[in-house]
Design a protein around this nucleic acid. Structure first.
Length: 764
DNA sequence: GAGCACTGC
């Protein structure tokens, strides 16, 4: 850590320029620090520093850097790919890495940003023969987009058609075939696969990428893989000890004399099951957690390639980070070299307000200093508008990207040279006692701050301005709390039960969720009938629920709906409830959006309103079914969504979910019938399924949730916001500025005692 | 009369 000379220059420049402009400067930036951990290895590979490579990263990366490749010259292209591959930091260690994999069944690889680990290691494994005998190398990713883009890149590098030797599999999209040897997939999908094939028998190696992100799926997967690894190794050990031969990669050549007493072995009978190789890849610098978890597993480090980023801190703590961010944007704009600015904010509202203030401030600047454009990006923004952040700014203009966390990992924006990090993030928290989620603004972790600053060093040397003093940085948590410690566990527990894990409290989680959280979710599953009183998966309800890729309470609603003769309606409702909000309300067209929504509104509540939207979209496609082609339908749907202020992304997602779960319930033999106009039947079914989420009106017109006893408020986006019905059921319970319930439908309070007598006793 | 970061099956 050293103070660079330019810090003083920077301060000097600023003070001089202060006189010239009307903007008020309040900052003095100090402490210029090299991100030494991130870039420590760069000195050893100076020649590589200038050519970042698109294959180095699995993110949604829009690389405009293919000027040399305008002509569709296949050979030039493949030569270029080969050169790029060879220049990756990882290329020089292929042989050593494969040796490590052969020697160690479990290997932790710490790969820095830009090392090329995600694209190259699977190819190394393939070349080393780990796919012999029809075996597959599986690589998991936390995000769909990463699985797809990396698979495409690797297929290109291998010169094969996607879906053949190299493929990917994500929900709704399976681009693999019987010849697929390198398979990229989401971690959640591999968990689903494990339900059908508990020993993951088709895989010789599983690579868990981005393990440091610690998503719920990754954490559960790690626990499961550890178990599967033990079982498959044990099988080998037991058999080799009685004289069986093994091939070099551990496959058993002979398998007679299998011990029939061991149930696991029974399932392995008749198959050659080599031990499962595990590779855990993490970008976090601390491999200790993973290594310790896997019994002191071997950890190796692979150098990365990223440009240096200078870190600046404020001298004093800032009281208003939005104000500080705006001032910093203008400081950079007026004093720093060309290059785009990426600002991390917590949500849509902040982004919109900062955007407006930037425009206002620009008007006060001299004409020739106004060349700055803004581009917001957050997940609920329609995709056409999201794409604007990737478009280069007009010539001579500086682009300011105002982003939520989406720009931290999910999307990579080229051209960013400056990052402004206020050091806060909006995070979801979960209170297992109340069963309530809340969204609150909290400080980032050190790892998050590092990730954010790294966004400035992708195309060249960058700068990151942290809007807090360095002393504050030292106080931050090292890494973000794993998701599994801050979410409802009902789904996780149901999945584990279905995978044969009986003792949830004893399950070997890398980090155990709290006992209270496990207890609450187990109780919920018992009340829903998924688990018996002695915590076994119930038959058939529990098994059916585990099979459906939905929240357990939605799965239960579907099963009940077949008895209430309203499964057709419930399939739609559940699909629509499983996606982000369907209605889109742009600020400037509020009233139009409301009028449009009223056309779908049902006086009985939000569930029927959502069904109306879905059916209207169905009717539309039915009317125009003569216009054939999937693309044509997409186009018709998009236009209709726009006219009706509906998010086309959410609706498309809901339609995908609908067709997926419809297939599942058909296979389960449930009867799909409609209650027609008898919506009472549908609402009775809602009451039977969502009895845990019922609320009663209080004399003061607020509501009290019956299960938790909390005072709750109907969310203003609900169609029932103005209707004060006596008894309602709801889907979500979220605390923001108040305790809100969302997606609400009117029911009759007596239905609860009738339909959920195990929970509600009638008061005489 | 609010305003919800991001993923995933």
């Amino acid at each position: 850590m050293k103070i660079r000379g330019s810090a003083a220059e920077y301060l000097g420049n600023k003070n001089e320029q202060k006189q010239g402009f009307k903007l008020k400067y309040v900052f003095v930036w100090v402490k210029v620090k090299r991100l030494s951990l991130f870039f420590s290895c760069r000195a050893k590979m100076p020649s590589m520093a200038q050519t970042p490579n698109p294959s180095a990263n699995g993110n949604l990366s829009f690389n405009h850097n293919n000027n040399n490749n305008n002509k569709p010259n296949f050979f030039a292209r493949s030569r270029k790919i080969l050169e790029q591959r060879k220049s990756l930091p990882i290329a020089s260690v292929e042989r050593r890495l494969i040796e490590e994999v052969r020697k160690h069944d479990i290997l932790i690889i710490v790969g820095e940003t830009g090392s090329g680990k995600t694209t190259q290691i699977p190819q190394f494994l393939f070349n080393a023969g780990f796919c012999r005998g029809g075996k597959t190398v599986g690589i998991t990713q936390p995000r769909r987009v990463a699985a797809v883009t990396v698979a495409k890149r690797v297929a290109e590098e291998c010169g094969v058609e996607l879906g053949q030797k190299v493929g990917y599999s994500i929900r709704f999209e399976d681009v693999t075939s019987s010849s697929t040897s390198i398979k990229y997939m989401t971690d959640g999908l591999l968990l689903r696969e494990a339900l059908l094939d508990p020993y993951l028998s088709r895989y010789s190696v599983i690579v868990v990428d981005e393990a440091h992100e610690r998503t719920v799926h990754t954490d559960v997967l790690l626990g499961l893989l550890k178990k599967v690894h033990n079982v498959r190794s044990k099988y080998i050990r037991d058999h080799t000890s009685v004289g069986h031969k093994r091939t070099s990669d551990g496959a058993i050549l002979e398998k007679e004399n299998a011990d029939p007493c061991i149930s696991v072995l029974k399932q392995c009978e008749g198959r050659k099951l080599p031990p499962l190789k595990l590779i855990i890849m993490s970008a976090s610098l601390d491999a200790r957690v993973f290594s310790e978890y896997f019994g002191g597993a071997r950890a190796v480090h692979i150098q990365g390639r990223q440009f240096p980023v200078d870190i600046f801190y404020t001298v004093n703590p800032q009281t208003d980070y939005l104000d500080s961010a705006i001032i910093t944007i203008f400081q950079i704009h007026l004093e720093e070299a060309p290059g785009d600015i990426l600002v991390f904010l917590t949500g849509q509202e902040e982004i919109e307000s900062v955007e407006k203030q930037i425009q206002d401030n620009l008007r006060q600047l001299p004409e020739d200093s106004r060349k700055m454009s803004t581009a917001p990006i957050f997940s609920s923004l329609p995709s056409e508008q999201q794409m604007r952040v990737f478009a280069p700014a007009p010539a001579g203009f500086r682009k300011v990207i105002l982003a939520t966390n989406i720009a931290e990992t999910s999307v990579t924006i080229p051209g960013v040279k400056y990052v402004i990090d206020p050091g806060v993030v909006k995070a979801r928290c979960y209170d297992p006692i109340k069963g309530m989620e809340s969204l609150i603004v909290v400080p980032t972790s050190k790892a998050q701050a590092l990730q954010r600053s790294g966004r400035a060093g992708r195309d060249g040397r960058g700068k990151c301005f942290r809007l807090y003093p360095e002393s504050e940085f030292e106080k931050l948590e090292d890494s973000t709390k794993p998701e599994i410690k801050r979410c409802n566990l009902s789904n996780v527990i149901l999945q584990l039960k279905a995978l044969g894990v009986d003792d949830i409290f004893g399950f070997d989680f890398i980090e155990k969720p709290s006992r209270a959280a496990i207890k609450r979710s187990v109780e919920e599953l018992i009340l829903l009938g998924a688990l018996t009183d002695d915590c076994k998966l119930s038959d058939p309800v529990g098994h059916q629920m585990a099979r459906l890729p939905l929240d357990p309470i939605y799965s239960k609603a579907l099963i009940l709906a077949s008895q209430f003769n309203c499964l057709e309606e419930m399939l739609i409702a559940v699909a629509m409830l499983s996606v982000e909000s369907i209605f889109y309300e742009p600020r400037e067209k509020k009233n139009e959006a409301r009028t449009a929504k009223n056309c779908f509104a049902s006086p009985e509540g939000d569930h029927l309103t959502l069904i109306n939207v879905y059916r209207a979209s169905n009717d539309l496609l039915e009317k125009r079914k003569s216009e054939v082609g999937k693309d044509k339908h997409e186009k018709i749907l998009r236009k209709w969504c726009k006219e009706n202020f509906i998010s086309s992304r959410s609706l498309r997602h809901a339609r995908d979910i609908h067709s997926q779960i419809q297939q599942h319930v058909e296979q389960m033999g449930l009867c799909i019938s409609s209650c027609g106009d008898d919506t009472l039947q549908f609402r009775r079914c809602l009451a039977a399924a969502f009895f845990l989420n019922a609320a009663l009106k209080q004399p003061n017109k607020t509501y009290r949730a019956l299960a938790s006893g909390e005072v709750v408020h109907i969310h203003p986006t609900s169609v029932l916001f103005h209707t004060k019905a006596d008894c309602i059921i709801f889907n979500e319970f979220v605390k923001t500025s108040k305790e809100y319930i969302r997606n609400v439908t009117i029911i009759d309070g007596f239905w609860l005692t009738e339909l959920a007598p195990h929970y509600y006793a009638r008061q005489e």
